[in-house]
Amino acid sequence: MDPAEVISERFPHVVDAVFHDERRAREAASALATKAGLSNEHIHVVEPDDPQRAEQLDPEPSEISRTLLRSNAALGVIGAVVGLIVAGILIGAGFDWATASPGWVYGILAVVGGLFGMLSAGIVSVRLDHERVLADTRDASTHGEWTVVAHAHNEDEKHRVSELLKEYSGTVTQSRPAEPSSPSTPSTS
């Protein structure tokens, strides 16, 4: 199951670019609105030591709780079903311990599978794919730099935003890279 199926956020992808001055950051933000077609509510310019940095990095806080509930329900059920399938295989294979108490085997493996599913849901809900972007923005803000943060609807939009920001900044980071083996490389501009 693709994590995007259990994420309730409308704009789950994040791209950021770090700038040394406000003018260049504002130019990049303006270009995102005109060239990439993002609305201004999905583009944020984070100032040095910005007190509203958290809100700009995560503008959909109510969706995070929905993601938590949705992912726990979906992945918990999937895990329980996988546990039941494994139990059926073990009982069908004729293991003495499994055939002696098939009800217990089904019950225990369904519970264990459900728990593993819910643990997986916790990983999805934490949004580890955003950690690089959050860390870059936090570091830039504390070191007196400006950051443009853009929230994208899908992978294609994220890629367009990333390519456009590379024209303005040498430091561009994106959540969950499209190609895990090759992280976003800074451009020289």
Rank of each mutant, 00 (worst) to 15 (best):
P3D: 15
L164S: 11
F11T: 07
Q174W: 01
W146T: 00
H159Q: 13
I89T: 09
S71Y: 03
D49K: 13
G107E: 07
R66W: 09
T147W: 07
A87I: 05
H143L: 05
V15E: 03
V105K: 13
A17V: 02
R176P: 00
S65K: 07
M118V: 12
A100E: 14
G37A: 06
A150I: 05
A17K: 00
V161K: 02
S184R: 13
S162I: 02
V15W: 10
F95S: 07
D156A: 12
S101V: 14
Y168Q: 03
A29I: 01
E179S: 12
L69F: 08
K35T: 12
G170T: 13
D96S: 12
P12N: 03
E5N: 13
D96K: 14
R23F: 07
G113N: 08
T67S: 10
A150Q: 07
F11E: 05
V148G: 06
G76Q: 10
E179V: 15
W97N: 09
A74C: 10
D21N: 14
T171C: 02
V148H: 06
V14K: 14
D136P: 03
I78E: 12
S184W: 11
N40Q: 08
A152I: 06
V86I: 12
Y168P: 02
D136R: 13
S162F: 03
S65C: 01
V46E: 05
G114S: 08
A4K: 09
S182P: 03
L164N: 09
V105I: 15
V172W: 02
E157T: 04
A73H: 10
D58V: 01
A152D: 06
N40S: 09
F116A: 08
T137I: 03
S120Y: 04
H42Y: 09
E55N: 11
V14D: 09
D2I: 05
S65R: 05
A110P: 09
H44F: 15
S187V: 15
R53L: 15
S65M: 06
S181K: 14
D50F: 01
G114N: 06
Q174S: 12
D129L: 02
S30L: 09
D16K: 04
V126Q: 10
A87S: 14
T147H: 04
N72D: 04
L128K: 15
L164H: 10
V126N: 09
R70S: 07
S181T: 15
V6I: 15
R127T: 03
E55T: 03
N72I: 15
G92T: 03
R53S: 06
R160I: 01
P61R: 02
D50V: 00
L75V: 12
P48T: 01
V82Q: 08
H130D: 14
P183R: 10
R26D: 08
V105P: 09
R176I: 05
G107S: 14
Y106S: 03
L119Q: 07
R127L: 12
E155F: 09
I7F: 02
F116T: 04
R160N: 06
P3G: 12
A54F: 13
S125I: 01
E163P: 00
V105T: 15
V126G: 09
K158V: 00
N40Y: 04
A98K: 11
T185M: 14
E155N: 11
S120C: 05
L84V: 11
